[in-house]
Structure formats: structure tokens, C-alpha cells
């Protein structure tokens, strides 16, 4: 089926670009192309776009957010109306955003007190506990424990850590050897030398062997500083 009867150049243009013209229609279009500089310019502008769309990995189409991926029924309605068929919803990996929002909250210092206070007052104490012991140059009395308080949600309580020095903060990490280090929360410690943080965890947190707390420096990059102060084995 060819589309050579289309009355407008634009219509022939899309059919040409998409390879939907039969040989006769294609020859006529190319004849016109040779004589029409504007049309030629349009082809030159759009042909690379077509090529790049053909090169897109299938997964790219599959992970397009819902605002661009309406249901079959919604799809046609969107095409007919030109309006959005779905409102965007958060992707499945929402924990990443949630976790990092918590990280952001704490590093920024905004509302950190409220979050910590809320942690202290909460009475939820279910799930196994992981004890973190001093590591490296941590004060001998420093300690922490972590307990799952909901699926994929951990409460980390820290005791007797020095107050966060200016320009520094503490960060909790999941470790599985040097190649696998994932930050899960950043937090500050006040003059009372304590902190309680509730942290969303990655879905596959059980793949990691250690929970680690390091001292990090603002502006020194996002990698683990190497300055671990507390560490506990996850079992």
C-alpha cells in the first residue's frame, strides 16, 4: 500500500522518509526533491531523526514514562484529541527517589531535627537488629544499630558519634566489597552525639554484606571517603 495520492508535500514527505512510497511515487517525489530546495532541506533535516528512531533500543520505548505510553484505549483517545491520556505516575523504583529525598533533606539540614525527633518518638521496633561497631578512628564508645521497621525501610540509631564537623556529614552505605558501595542516607549529628534516621532501602538490599557509616566532606565528591567510623555485618 502506498501513499502517493496524498495532496500535500508534507504528506509525501513523511511517506518518503518512512519508506512507504512505491517505486513510482518515490521517483516522482525524488524528481520534485531535485527541483525544490525547501523540500530537500526538509528531508535533510528529518531523515537523520528517522534513522535515530530506528536505532532506539526496544527497551527505550518500553520504559517511556506513562505520559508518553498510554494504554491502548487511552492511546487512541490521546492521538485523536492531541491531549494527554494519562497523568504521569512514579516509576516502580520509587524508593530511589524516596531514599534520595531523605538524603537531600538531611544533608541540607532542612527539617533534619524534625525527622530525627520523629525517629526517636516512634515506637515501631520490629525486624532483626544489626549492630555497628567502631571502625577505623571512631571513638571507642561510638555505636549504632539498624532495624527494619517496614519492608525496605530501616531505622538507623547512632550513639556517641562526634557532632558533625563544619563542612562534613555522616553517610550510611551498603557494602559488598570494594566494587559495590551504595549510599543509602546522609545525616548530621548534633551536640547530643546521637541521631536516628529512617532510611528507605533498595529492593535488593539483602545482596549487601555490610552496613557502614563514614564521615564525608561536602564538595569532595560522592564516593565513599574511605573514612569509615562504624560498620556492622548484615546477616
Amino acid at each position: 500500500m502506498t501513499d502517493d495520492r496524498s495532496p500535500t508535500p508534507d504528506a509525501d514527505l513523511s511517506s518518503y522518509l518512512l519508506g512507504e512510497l512505491d517505486a513510482g511515487a518515490r521517483a516522482r517525489f525524488e524528481h520534485r526533491l531535485a527541483e525544490d530546495a525547501d523540500l530537500r532541506a526538509q528531508v535533510e533535516r528529518l531523515a537523520p531523526v528517522v534513522t535515530r528512531l530506528y536505532e532506539l533500543p526496544e527497551q527505550a520505548w518500553e520504559v517511556l514514562p506513562p505520559s508518553s505510553q498510554p494504554s491502548k484505549a487511552g492511546s487512541h483517545a490521546a492521538l485523536r484529541s492531541g491531549r494527554r491520556a494519562w497523568l504521569p505516575s512514579l516509576p516502580a523504583r520509587r524508593w530511589v527517589a524516596g531514599g534520595l529525598a531523605a538524603v537531600a533533606l538531611l544533608v541540607a539540614g532542612a527539617g533534619a531535627g524534625a525527622l530525627l525527633e520523629r525517629g526517636r518518638d516512634s515506637s515501631v521496633t520490629r525486624g532483626p537488629e544489626v549492630a555497628l561497631a567502631p571502625f577505623g578512628r571512631a571513638p571507642a564508645g561510638a555505636s549504632a544499630n539498624a532495624r527494619m521497621v517496614a519492608p525496605n525501610r530501616m531505622r538507623l540509631s547512632v550513639e556517641d558519634l562526634p557532632p558533625s564537623p563544619a563542612g562534613s556529614y555522616y553517610e550510611a552505605w551498603l557494602l559488598d566489597g570494594p566494587g559495590r558501595v551504595v549510599p543509602v542516607a546522609a545525616f548530621s549529628v548534633g551536640p547530643d552525639r546521637r541521631a536516628v534516621v529512617e532510611v528507605p532501602l533498595p529492593a535488593a538490599a539483602d545482596r549487601y554484606r555490610f552496613l557502614d557509616i563514614s564521615l564525608q566532606h561536602v564538595g569532595a565528591g560522592t564516593a565513599h571517603s574511605g573514612d569509615s567510623l562504624l560498620r556492622g555485618a548484615l546477616s
Partner: peptide
């Protein structure tokens, strides 16, 4: 703090 969630979305 909302920036990461916005970026993620």
C-alpha cells in the same frame, strides 16, 4: 529535598 524526586520522575 524534592529535587531528586522530581528528577527521578
Amino acid at each position: 529535598p524534592s529535587a531528586i524526586a522530581q528528577l527521578q520522575e
